[in-house]
Amino acid sequence: MTEWFAENIHFIMELLVEGLLIGMLYALIALGFVLIYKASDAINFAQGELVMFAGYIVVACINSLKVNLFVGILIGLAAMVVFGLVVERGMLRPLIGRPVVSIIMATIGLAYVLRGLSPMIWGYPTLEMKLPIRGMPWEVAGILVMPIYVVACGVSLLLLAAFGYFFLKSRSGIAMRAVADDQQTALAMGINVQHFFAVAWAMAGVVAVVGGVIWGNLLGVDNMLALVGLKVFPVVILGGLDSVPGVVIGGLIVGAVESLAAGYLDPLVGGGTKDFAPYVLMILFLMFKPYGLFGQEIIERV
């Protein structure tokens, strides 16, 4: 065993580093999901599509308006905030008080709309998101690391810290937590609940832009980009649906697990474990610890 470990340590480290870095990027996307869930108890099955849509907007601005990346991102942010508000106003607000299945289905509908709309507007070929980051990998202690991952990781950590601070310290953040905890009590305390639903969707839009730029750079901007959204569920279940720190831990675990599974199981079973392993982990969590590592436990006998 120790011999095997000594032989494989380098490989394991390589897989782990890559997995953890990618995990941070998953955390970035999952953050948007958690923000919406925290504020409005709504489940957003269209998170991946929001990321894709944001990526399309930024790339389209850069390509057709000939602006630089920074301005493109600013336009993207503005557009996605407006889009988030429109979705909240037009789709989610009429559904308040309806069963969960309605809200899930509505966001699935939104996902379909975005997946159909984006190529109709911007065409089918994959668009390239160019970032001013070197493409050659760095070598750290014998392990190759892509610079884009490191930058993206930094950005994710920054955003997560910012949102963590927002929820813990700022007045609006505390109000949002109150809304998430109990809508009626929040209303009684004079909090404008609907206002904070809208804020949550706008924030999800902001996160989607960051996710769209980074993931768009990694995978290229096309319809397949939305599939990143499928990784959101294992991440948020592991971390706990309403926890910002949980997103980071969940993302890291999912990244590491899928990377190790891909490295060791793929040769045995013939590929595809990358998409499969996180879900197995997730269903185990759902059976034994459904509220995740950091989620708020709602004790309820069903």
Binding site: M105, A106, G109, A111, Y112, V113, R115, G116, L117
Partner: peptide
Amino acid sequence: NQLKTFTFGALIIFFLV
């Protein structure tokens, strides 16, 4: 094909709302 996807999603939202 895209129009189909779009209409499908839009109809779901329309019916739900």
